[in-house]
Amino acid sequence: MSAPRGQEGLLSADAVLHRAAERLAHQFTGLVGEETVERVVFESYAALARTATVTSLLPPLAEKFSHDRLTALAQSRGLVVKTVPEILYVCVQNSGRSQMAAAITRQLAGDRVHVRSAGSQPAAELLPGVVTVLEEAGIDLSGEFPKPLTDDVVRAADAVVTMGCGDACPLYPGKRYLDWQLTDLAGLDLDGVRAVRDEIQGHVEQLLAELLPSTQATS
């Protein structure tokens, strides 16, 4: 009997995902159980598949996404010690504003913070204008992709910055929540995207100055 429509890709990737789960289970031995690892891998694949346009890239992206989620899960359980502040940037599609904020934060702070980004309704790919204006600033986004917002990354964050995603982000005690009022990038020309990029950089510099008070926020 043929697979239900929409599940063919998952079935064809099944063996690849099982191998990815085995690799991750080995990496997270003693931190996260094998069943949890496998569930996260298949959940991550299914979540990314909802918007993917090139399915051949999904298994490696799902493994990368799963690794980040499992790290966040271990951190939230206190099984992995956080040595630097964790920042999570959230917008609707994770294709523009949150990706720019994460990329600029990495450029300015380096390894003094750890950064994640996610979307409440992730798009299929990054906005071309975002890639262009960040390349102008010397930032390469070739390894980035829109990711859905998951509970584990919120729990692991110290600071959660939202950008027009409403109340999609769950609230947990002990975390710092910020909402940056930024123009939606949809329909903006490159000059408009550049203006938002520069506005985001100002916000990021201020946040880093608060999170890293004893050091210079910019490198």
Rank of each mutant, 00 (worst) to 15 (best):
L141I: 08
T218Y: 06
V54A: 12
A20S: 14
S214H: 14
E63I: 07
T162V: 07
L141C: 08
I87T: 04
Q99V: 02
L126Q: 10
L190C: 09
E199W: 07
P148C: 13
L88S: 03
R176M: 11
S117P: 01
E34P: 11
A123H: 11
H18Y: 14
V133W: 06
Y172E: 04
A72F: 01
L208G: 05
M163H: 00
T83P: 06
G78I: 09
L126R: 08
V133C: 08
D111L: 05
G164I: 10
G9L: 12
G96H: 07
A137G: 10
H203A: 01
R5H: 10
D152P: 01
G138E: 08
D152N: 07
H26I: 12
A102S: 07
Q121L: 13
E144P: 00
A21V: 08
G6H: 10
V80E: 07
L61P: 02
L10K: 11
Q27A: 14
H203P: 02
L171G: 02
W180T: 07
T51V: 14
V115W: 01
I139R: 01
V154R: 01
A72G: 08
S219P: 15
L171F: 12
E125K: 02
V81N: 04
S120F: 03
L73T: 09
S66M: 10
A137R: 13
T132M: 10
L73N: 03
D68P: 00
E8L: 11
L10V: 09
S12I: 08
A74D: 06
G164Q: 02
G33W: 06
D198G: 07
